[in-house]
Write a protein that binds this DNA or RNA. Structure first.
Lengths: 224, 224
DNA sequence: GTCTATAAAAAGATAGAC
DNA sequence: GTCTATCTTTTTATAGAC
């Protein structure tokens, strides 16, 4: 082993469809084999999950030989770790962009909920929680835990801030409501995939937004 | 092929932990090989998903030989179809028990949300929506679609009924709110599994119930 | 660093005995 | 009906050439 699972890697960004794909100015036109391996793994984990993704499929998509993979990573799990970390970071950045936008707390949460998503493909991070091998590995689960923990905290922070500003009813529990908002998105994906239709996702979002709207103090500038 | 995937099977009920495990009086003490195969598959699909479940593992858990499986079923997919149908029926029955309980609309929905669940194991039906091979097969996806469609409709019906009785605010959208409630449960599982902790699930449920409570007309008998 | 060759094990199914 | 033997393909790695 040599470069083995470069952990502190902050490198560039995600592949096709994955959040956080704005190119760093210094990003090379032709990504390295290591980089292509990570991106291929991100895509495949999203599409097929951990058990459903074989090293062979990764190599084929990345267009590299088997030797490259075992040179840069310990194997499937090491590569998955790098990919999951990368994906989780991308999701975080995408969510932060919505939640740090200007506007009332309601507007910002609504912005997050209504943000464009490839609903039928599901959440690349949430997807991993259904994979036994991922959840059972403390190392592989950590990025998921971190990401969703951060998300709930961030949404809760936005709601608490809105409450302090008098935009939201004092009775609202920011932390619990934040969990609800995050759950609606993840559960919306499940309902949509079961129906092979985005409508249930949209309905779930509409429902929680309507409920949240009833907690908005009249005349505090929200554009409901 | 002979008995091949007995479709109209209404047979008995699910295995360990799976909803709908109340024994039919006429259920035999020693289940048939076919029955044991279905139950083993239900368990394994829940634990490992479709891709993660091998025929070998099913056979070992059921304690039967390979011949039995290919005699009664077309193969892995046929067996999975029987198992998924069985599991979906069980979930439906379990939900109906809560939703048809006496009380106000709020109470019944709360009863559904607060019903005892093995949160960290996730939803055996929702789990399937993350499996590529399941969702891509019209036949395998159908029971999921049916189950979640029914659930949203049933919850929506309870809410609409409560609204007509004057228990709930006229502004509430029963259909959208029903999707939200169902999504919160499914998403709650995701958050809990990411954290390896049931707390996020409970918080999400608490959050949506608090929001729903604000829609209850005072003095209509709800035990919030 | 990246490639190909080789290999032990598991997946998924078939054949045929009993 | 149920079992075991056989078989092909895929999985996941290791070894070693370049």
């Amino acid at each position: 082993m040599s470069t083995q699972d470069s952990l502190g890697e902050q490198a560039s960004h995600g592949p096709q469809g994955l959040p956080g794909t704005h190119h760093t100015p210094s990003a090379p036109a032709t990504p390295s084999a290591q980089e292509r391996l990570v991106r291929s793994t991100q895509e495949l984990l999203w599409e097929r999950g951990y058990v459903g993704t074989s090293p062979k499929a990764i190599l084929e998509r990345a267009g590299v030989g088997q030797g490259s993979m075992y040179h840069h990573f310990t194997g499937k799990s090491g590569l998955a770790l790098a990919a999951i970390r990368r994906t989780a970071e991308g999701m975080k950045a995408a969510a932060e962009e919505c939640l740090s936008a200007p506007g009332t707390a309601y507007d910002r949460v609504a912005g997050y909920l209504l943000r464009e998503r490839e609903v039928l493909r599901g959440c690349p991070v949430g997807r991993m929680t259904q994979d036994r091998d991922v959840v059972r590995s403390a190392e592989l689960r950590e990025p998921l835990d971190e990401m969703f923990g951060w998300l709930r905290g961030r949404i809760g922070g936005v709601l608490a801030e809105g409450q302090q500003r008098g935009e939201l009813a004092p009775g609202l529990d920011p932390s619990a409501t934040a969990a609800t908002v995050a759950a609606v998105v993840q559960g919306g994906y499940v309902l949509a995939r079961a129906a092979d239709d985005t409508a249930p996702f949209d309905a779930a979002v509409r429902g929680v937004l309507s409920l949240l709207a009833t907690q908005v103090t009249p005349g505090t500038g929200s554009t409901r």
